[in-house]
């Protein structure tokens, strides 16, 4: 994962005719982490989607090198499939092997739920399943939108460990959250500072 980079240069984002933020710059290289903070509607999710290439920047530029794994509010796992098979679909798309799926499920303490259909999972278990999908992807750049939502303290700890391992392996993490997360991120972007009417 060395050589991974994510660089935002004076990025502005317009949604529904309203400028959410402007002048956001960020430069992360291998092992770098950033936190996005701000109230609901400040544009945290939009900035992550922008980083993932799912939204065009209104102005400025976004440059990525390395694969992207996005964890947003959508599970993207087949409801009827057992958890292991649902995760294996994405692993196959990402050219990850079966051992990576097992390791990711283990990292999120999901191994006992491998044969449970995805629709039966609880809110916290779904979030952990989503994080397992991110871990198994092997992508260098993790974009985590409210990764701590619905997680109990034990799971939050697992999340912190997984992120720590990813960073020390040379990955990049950008996490958006309105609550404190056990993630070491040297860079913090407080989005309300970048609102159009802010000086």
């Amino acid at each position: 994962m060395t050589g991974a980079a994510l660089r935002l240069d004076d990025v502005a984002c317009v949604r529904g005719g309203r400028m959410l933020f402007r002048g956001v710059s960020l430069s992360l290289t291998s092992g770098g982490g950033a936190m996005l903070t701000g109230a609901n509607g400040a544009g945290k999710s939009s900035l992550l989607r922008l980083c993932a290439g799912l939204l065009p920047a209104f102005s400025g530029s976004v440059v990525r090198s390395g694969g992207v794994a996005l964890c947003d509010e959508k599970l993207a796992l087949d409801n009827e499939a057992p958890l292991h098979r649902a995760l294996s679909f994405w692993a196959a798309i990402d050219r990850a092997d079966a051992a990576q799926v097992d390791a990711a499920m283990d990292a999120m303490a999901l191994t006992p739920l491998a044969e449970v259909p995805v629709r039966m999972l609880s809110t916290g278990q779904r979030k952990r399943a989503m994080l397992a999908r991110i871990i198994a992807s092997g992508a260098a750049i993790w974009l985590l939108d409210e990764p701590g939502n619905g997680l109990d303290t034990v799971s939050l700890d697992l999340l912190g460990q997984a992120v720590g391992r990813h960073l020390s392996a040379g990955g990049i993490v950008v996490a958006a959250s309105h609550q404190p997360l056990p993630i070491v991120a040297p860079v913090t972007i407080h989005l309300p500072d970048h609102q159009a009417d802010a000086a």
Binding site: A52, G53, L54, G67, V68, A69, L70, D72, E73, K74, L75, A76, L77, N79, W90, I93, D94
Partner: peptide, 14 residues
């Protein structure tokens, strides 16, 4: 679209 599967595929550059 609702489940986010298409977003995930697009984020992978497919």
């Amino acid at each position: 679209v609702q489940a986010g599967v298409l977003d995930q595929l697009a984020a992978r550059g497919i």
